[in-house]
């Protein structure tokens, strides 16, 4: 579904990624793990079109999306939840969900919002409330909900557990698994909570200093010495 081949990119003139390659198939959860500053989030930003690709190739469903903008990628079926479950603080919960499908016709959008509210019924009572006043767990639901409105084929999640209390983190991961199971959405997730993410993913990539240092099934990786070493 998505192939990243020898990706080179960075910020300004500073390179961050030095040719990592990865792949994600339909309906799977793939995790990217690694220490701070390894370039995990940068991979997601390059895929969704927030930063330019310097070299290498990103293909989604057999078309090259190197030069695609975030708006075009949303229409293609790639949505992105930036780090820390960001929501539009000053907009109501309903408006946040509407923004997720801003390009859709009114009727279609209403249907999509109903869909998301079935998945996260807790948001129903909060529709008119400003998103900035929601609790951390509710914001996580809303951030996920907003990204699901376009019915993405691939969902990019950047540290969904960031800023959540320990008991909310487990719920957040259950929710992500639920989205994958019930909707068949492929998920590429960047996480620092390694043990938690290994429980829900089908494949894992270890990144260090902008390069892939290992990849494999979570069961293989869990007891692998390379997993420990990547954080040293």
């Amino acid at each position: 579904m998505l192939k990243v081949n020898e990706l080179h990119t960075g910020y300004g003139k500073k390179p961050v990624l030095f040719g990592p390659s990865l792949e994600i198939s339909k309906g799977k959860i793939v995790a990217i793990i690694g220490p701070n500053g390894a370039g995990k989030s940068t991979i997601l930003k390059a895929i969704c079109g927030l930063i330019p690709v310097w070299d290498g190739k990103i293909t989604f469903e057999d078309s090259c999306i190197n030069d695609s903008t975030p708006a075009k990628n949303v229409k293609r079926g790639i949505t992105f939840c930036p780090q820390g479950n960001r929501v539009f603080d000053e907009l109501s919960v309903n408006e946040n969900l509407q923004i997720g499908g801003i390009y859709l016709k009114k009727k279609e959008l209403a249907g999509r919002i109903d869909d998301v509210l079935q998945l996260f019924p807790m948001l129903k009572d909060r529709l008119k409330q400003n998103a900035g006043t929601l609790s951390g767990g509710e914001q996580q639901m809303l951030a996920l909900g907003r990204a699901l409105i376009p019915r993405p084929k691939l969902l990019l999640l950047d540290e969904p557990s960031l800023g959540l209390s320990p008991n909310l983190i487990s719920t957040a991961f259950e929710r992500i698994q639920q989205v994958n199971r019930e909707r068949g959405t492929a998920i590429l997730i960047v996480e620092q909570k390694v043990r938690k993410v290994l429980k829900i993913c089908h494949k894992v990539y270890g990144i260090k200093l902008g390069k892939v240092v290992f990849d494999g099934q979570p069961e293989q990786i869990r007891h692998d010495e390379r997993l420990r070493q990547i954080f040293l």
């Binding site: 927030l50 975030p70 708006a71 992105f80 960001r86 539009f88 000053e90 801003i102 907003r146």
Partner: peptide, 20 residues
Amino acid sequence: GKSIRAVASDSVLADVSGID
């Protein structure tokens, strides 16, 4: 109107939400 408020609130999030 909503798009302008969204860009004002968080322009990066607006971008990745599909707003031009």
